[in-house]
Amino acid sequence: MATVLIGVDNSEASTRAVEFALERADAEDLQLVVAHVINWSPFSFNTNTENEERPARRKAEIAAADEQVIAPMVSLVEAAGRKASTQIRHGHPSETLIDIAEEVGASHIVVGRTGDSGLREAIFGSVVMKLVHVSPLPVTVVP
């Protein structure tokens, strides 16, 4: 059974990406993995206080992502009568999504079109653009 990785954040587009993947899953009997990457760099500069609090904040970030991002997507999947495994990681969004895809043996990545917005996207380009450029796997971008 082929596996599809769905990269999500808490945008509307992510909901559409999950819905799209569910349609394909019905047609092709796919295994679903829902993943969210918390944007984080190992090379950032922090204050002592931030470092001290980091382990606790990391846990809180994962818990928040689980509750606010992953849980709504999983309930969509379950409402459609299917199951999905989940992943939450810290890292560079597009690179980490590719890492997860390789680890779970996905043959395909599905993402919603909008992730970042505004100035950040204007300067750095979006996560989705980068993913499309560097992914070794087929990527479906759901508008």
Binding site: F43, N51, R54, R58, R89, G91
Partner: peptide, 12 residues
């Protein structure tokens, strides 16, 4: 990942 790295501790 997500915790304090060697780089970050050194940089601080």
């Amino acid at each position: 990942a997500g915790d304090v790295t060697h780089f970050q501790a050194l940089a601080t």
